[in-house]
């Protein structure tokens, strides 16, 4: 059987879950007849009809707020934000409503919305189709934030998200949409568990989503130079797998954190703080970050903006040789 790309794996999991649970509805701008801008919802309208696959207007506040209403009523909405960059107009609904309903009603109401958010640079999208806003999501209590890096994890994590009771921001690394990896499976990947992508005793590389492949490539290169890296793919950013992080740092004592989001106030700073608080007795070198720059994402020279093998390998060597 041919391998599934991330886009196909998400489509496959969505379809399977929709058969399994008739409360699941898919909504978003052009998710119906078009099948989504990236083809992730292709064929779902034909399969399930317009009562379960709903084209909405291109207004994210309306989209997220509608999803909140559907979830309040007892449905399981999966809302597609076409690009993460468009989520800002839906942020009030996300922060003030979707995330708080359980807490502010003391558990009387829940809001199990899955918000699919294609994110990241590297597709020539310029500054409004390339952002990585995970730090913003991760500052919102009540939201689970997921960022898979391959089709198997994307499908498995989506299953968990759809079977859970909480709102999930499901960040899809769009420049990997066409990458193959997954085979058809019913695997359910639990939220909050990291995956060790490579084992090594010299340095810990922590990353997630879109920067997993480039980090693995750098680890390969470092290996050829005699540095063996432990590569941790977080998969879930909130709550992240702290046990896996501390287990790895106890082994290596050195860490490089990789993310394509802007550096300052970025999500990986939380990991660095955790290492400083809980891993200090193991640390033998400063924790390094390899990230995007503190700029909007540029149209030209995206390759300079994005963490590449050279920058990651240089950081690995600095940390390993400290």
């Amino acid at each position: 059987m041919s391998e599934l790309t991330i886009a196909q794996a998400v489509n496959h999991a969505l379809r399977a879950e929709m058969f399994r649970d008739d409360r699941i509805v898919v909504l978003g701008d052009e998710v119906g007849a078009l099948g989504g801008l990236f083809g992730v919802t292709e064929g779902l309208l034909e399969e399930f009809g317009d009562r379960r696959v709903i084209d909405t207007l291109a207004a994210e506040g309306g989209l997220v707020g509608t999803a909140v209403g559907l979830a309040l009523y007892g449905l399981r909405p999966v809302a597609e934000i076409q690009f993460a960059d468009f989520v800002w107009s839906g942020f009030e609904q996300l922060v003030s409503e979707m995330a708080t309903l359980r807490y502010r009603s003391a558990g009387q109401y829940t809001c199990p919305v899955v918000l699919r958010v294609p994110y990241g640079a590297g597709v020539g999208g310029g500054m409004y189709q390339s952002q990585s806003p995970e730090a913003h999501f991760c500052q919102i209590p009540g939201i689970t934030v997921v960022a898979p890096a391959d089709g198997t994890d994307a499908a498995g994590l989506l299953r968990s998200a759809l079977r859970g009771e909480d709102p999930v921001v499901f960040m899809e690394p769009k420049r990997l949409y066409r990458e193959g990896r997954a085979s058809m499976s019913d695997e359910v990947v639990p939220l909050g568990s990291a995956r060790v992508r490579r084992e090594g005793a010299d340095v810990t590389l922590v990353t997630y989503g879109s920067t997993v492949p480039v980090t693995l490539e750098a680890a390969q290169l470092a290996s050829a130079r005699g540095i063996q890296a432990d590569v941790l793919d977080l998969r879930t950013l909130v709550p992240f797998d702290i046990a896996a992080l501390l287990r790895s740092i106890a082994k290596t004592g050195r860490a490089v954190l990789v993310s394509e989001a802007p550096r300052s106030g970025g999500y990986v700073a939380e990991l660095a703080a955790t290492l400083a608080e809980r891993g200090i007795m193991h640390l033998e070198a400063p924790v390094e970050r390899v990230t995007g720059f503190d700029t909007p994402v540029p149209y030209a020279h995206e390759d300079k903006y994005l963490p590449d093998v050279g920058r990651i390998t240089a950081a690995i060597e600095r940390v390993a040789n400290f």
Binding site: G65, A67, V68, G69, L70, L75
Partner: peptide
Amino acid sequence: IQHAAGVALAMQLR
């Protein structure tokens, strides 16, 4: 306002 629209949509779908 949007939640009412969402719940109303859910009622309609169901």
